[in-house]
Design a protein around this nucleic acid. Sequence first.
DNA 1: CTCCGTGCAAAGATTTTGCAGGAAC
DNA 2: GTTCCTGCAAAATCTTTGCACGGAG
Lengths: 143, 143
Amino acid sequence: MIDERQRRAIERLQQFGLRSTPQRRAIWNVFAQLGQGHLTAEEVLDRAQAELPELSRATVYKTLGEFVRVGLLRTVAGHGPLRFDPNLDASHHHFICERCQQIVDVHLTGIEQLRLQQPGLRVHRIRILVEGRCAACAAEPDA
Amino acid sequence: MIDERQRRAIERLQQFGLRSTPQRRAIWNVFAQLGQGHLTAEEVLDRAQAELPELSRATVYKTLGEFVRVGLLRTVAGHGPLRFDPNLDASHHHFICERCQQIVDVHLTGIEQLRLQQPGLRVHRIRILVEGRCAACAAEPDA
DNA sequence: CTCCGTGCAAAGATTTTGCAGGAAC
DNA sequence: GTTCCTGCAAAATCTTTGCACGGAG
């Protein structure tokens, strides 16, 4: 069970050309058991230390940077610290609730019809951030 | 000429319900003479100090926050520090060159056709960040 | 006159870096 | 054995805050 999890972590890291270390496995396992989510470096540190208490903050930052570089994670910039997203589905985007600040993955149709009105720009990726109120907060009265 | 500029700054601040102070006028004037652009707080400080050398960093941060709150500026989050955009055109979005990091305003058609596939979310705004290579950097060999 | 904005300095939050020892392959 | 990773501590970067004074309305 646990061994199975570690085996999968090792495999995943190697798929992306990374050496397998206890630190990297612990960090990867945080995301593997998370499913959908968007964690800050600090949150990753907290959770990964459950598996590996001596893990350091510097290693978390360096490792998250590596994971992004090789394509194992993507970043989500909003307010506050950078967040990391294990969902690699190229067609997903993000919704952020302006009241509770929660971020959720969303899918949008119609993206293929988007056309840039400026010539000369080579497009590699489109990031869409939808802002509004989540279901729970939409029911609330205030600002 | 200069008086005319200050008169316009005062008018603009009052339109948005803000008291007119030398600091706020100097900061507004930075954006007024900028046209299109996306400045960091530090860049705003540097430029505004040309008009008002004793302007402090804390005031710049507080004032930019106020300007955003009342709708005189919008923010652009990317890599690095937050940037501030005086372009209030609701239909404009941003292109960032992944090589030189320059941000330019862009227009996109087809945004009205975008549809969220999740129910229960109340949408207030959509921010689109297009990533790629600008014309100059597209000609370069690569990273 | 009252309230709000400003400046200073300090603190807080987030992220990066240099380097020595140790682990991965 | 070679290369790369890790941890520590320090620093760099970016932003916020508390408070006393002074200016705006």
